[in-house]
């Protein structure tokens, strides 16, 4: 084999591997998922460090939330139907947990940083629950945290609208006090199911 062919081949293999890694990065692999007998996903390898801005304008990282359970949800405030439902669910989870809810910090991370400034987030989230924290950041900061949580999001421009909507994945993540994602809830999981799962972890 000629040297140049060999280099070409190696480059091609690297490219294919990189593309495969990228594709897998954006979706949740079955290998990363542990399910309990009822089919509820109980653990997923994901999450990690982030640098973002909260709805009060303060810079925050994942370290600010250590020590508490965290319910993470990705969405955007211009979302008229699905996101309010998910946020209402999160508020209901807190209600269900009663006093235990103090050990849970609910966070909404926007996937639409262009429009969701701290002020916009602030007015929106307080419509749902005064303990929900909204996080935004630069486009790259959001891209980074979304990748770590394997969140897919895409801007959708439709000629019919004077503004754009977003397609996005819809999981609610439970992060433990040490910062690891320990549960993943699909869209439509009932608030009581989520509350039960949190309680189960609290009891250890």
């Amino acid at each position: 084999m000629k040297k140049s062919t060999r280099i070409g081949l190696i480059l091609a293999i690297i490219l294919v591997a990189a593309l495969a890694a990228l594709a897998e990065w954006l979706v949740i692999r079955e290998d990363d998922i542990t399910k309990n007998p009822s089919g509820l996903i109980t653990s997923v390898k994901m999450g990690g460090a982030f640098n973002l801005i909260d709805h009060k304008g303060n810079a925050v990282t994942e370290k600010n939330f250590l020590g508490n359970y965290v319910l993470v949800f990705f969405g955007y405030t211009f979302c008229p139907d699905a996101c309010p439902t998910a946020l209402a669910d999160v508020a209901l989870v807190l209600d269900e947990l009663g006093r235990d809810s103090l050990a849970v910090t609910p966070i909404m991370i926007t996937i639409d940083p262009e429009r969701d400034t701290p002020d916009v987030l602030s007015e929106y989230i307080t419509l749902f629950h005064d303990r929900i924290i909204g996080l935004t950041g630069t486009e790259n900061q959001i891209k980074d945290v979304a990748e770590k949580y394997r969140v897919f999001y895409r801007r959708v421009d439709d000629q019919e609208y004077s503004f754009y909507l977003m397609d996005h994945t819809s999981f609610i993540y439970l992060v433990d006090p040490k910062g690891s994602v320990i549960s993943l809830f699909r869209y439509g999981t009932s608030p009581s199911e989520i509350a039960d799962e949190i309680r189960k972890h609290m009891k250890g």
Binding site: I28, F152, D158, E160, D167, H168, T169
Partner: peptide, 19 residues
């Protein structure tokens, strides 16, 4: 300004809206 009929669908785990 405008009102339309809309549908939310779950494509796998991705939320999509379409008119």
């Amino acid at each position: 300004k405008k009102a339309t009929l809309h549908d939310m669908i779950l494509d796998g785990d991705i939320i999509k809206m379409h008119s």
